[in-house]
């Protein structure tokens, strides 16, 4: 891997994170928001593998990425459970319907 490849992977990382944030900002559906969160996580996973490669300790990079996969899958499961609950109670997944507390 040369310098240019590292830069490209870093740009892909930033791109994935950016696309995820964009989705979270504009989505009108809770599940879409969770998908956005997952896209961000993909970017971060790639960042950890890249970090392992650059610092020459691939084992550590992979180990960290593995931990991130486990943890963020748990968060995704909890978020989906919450979304299911919201759909049952509010009858919609649109976050704009969640305004009972706003004033």
């Amino acid at each position: 891997m040369d310098y240019l490849d590292g830069v490209i992977v870093l740009l892909v990382v930033l791109g994935l994170v950016g696309i995820g944030i964009y989705a979270i900002m504009v989505s009108r559906n809770l599940i879409k928001i969770i998908i956005g969160m997952q896209v961000m996580v993909k970017g971060v996973l790639l960042a950890f593998v890249l970090a392992g490669r650059v610092s020459g300790n691939m084992g550590l990079g992979q180990s960290l990425a593995l931990t991130v996969i486990v943890v963020d899958t748990i968060v995704a499961v909890v978020a989906l459970a919450l979304a299911v609950r919201v759909r049952r109670r509010f009858g919609t997944l649109d976050p704009r319907a969640l305004t009972t507390l706003r004033r």
Binding site: R53, L66, T73, R87
Partner: peptide, 29 residues
């Protein structure tokens, strides 16, 4: 990048398990 192990895990969990979870949740909602 040189991480065959994490690639397999990402393929099975990220592309497999998480997708199943999403499909499951979309079915429920």
């Amino acid at each position: 990048l040189g991480g065959p192990f994490i690639a397999v895990i990402e393929l099975s969990v990220g592309a497999g398990l998480v997708t199943v979870l999403f499909v499951f949740a979309i079915n429920l909602t």
